[in-house]
Design a binder for these strands. Sequence first.
DNA 1: TAAACATATGAACACATATTTAATTGTTTA
DNA 2: TAAACAATTAAATATGTGTTCATATGTTTA
Lengths: 101, 101
Amino acid sequence: MDHEEKISQLADLFSLMGDPSRLRIILTCLHEPISVSDIASELGLSQSLVSHHLRLLRAARMVRADRRGKQVFYIAADEHVRCVIEDMAEHINEPAELEVG
Amino acid sequence: MDHEEKISQLADLFSLMGDPSRLRIILTCLHEPISVSDIASELGLSQSLVSHHLRLLRAARMVRADRRGKQVFYIAADEHVRCVIEDMAEHINEPAELEVG
DNA sequence: TAAACATATGAACACATATTTAATTGTTTA
DNA sequence: TAAACAATTAAATATGTGTTCATATGTTTA
């Protein structure tokens, strides 16, 4: 994988996390597996929409699927996803700094 | 700042990094200040486009501006931006894992 | 097998946004 | 002050995409 391709993949991942609904979905399954319908009801989103988003997240290997009977449980794929979100949250919490310009 | 607002801000930041041109711009000024025109020529983007993107990045406090004479130099705002990118890069480098589904 | 439940998929639409072109603002220097 | 250079801004367009609605696929149980 060359450099440009890596940047492109990075952008894709960030783009996925850039949608509020999708970010909420990621946060909902960040620490424990949760079913599609539970995600939907918890976030007040339609089942269809959640499923659409999960498909994209799964394709990017940001979440993993685990079928248990009729239901499918999803959970965040690895530690990095958690770290990224935590780092970004810290950025938000930082006080604004003075700018020149 | 309440929880929903924080999620919204997080999504905005990720969304900004989700555009390939903008991500490249961030990477270009990640470790040292660089002028708008130098960013543009290095990335093969128009000055106008780079300026547009920098305005958004500056508004989100992801980069800082520093005018020196005619030129304006930009640099990534803080460590968190660097950490986030590094974490995400590690995610990409991880080998694919088996899925159930 | 049929019915009920859970999830996934397809098509269509509405909206957001990345990019271009052109004009403007700001800074230096001749 | 005028000209040259650097960056910003505005308007317009073209493309992408989040969401909805309807339908299909897959799984369990009666």
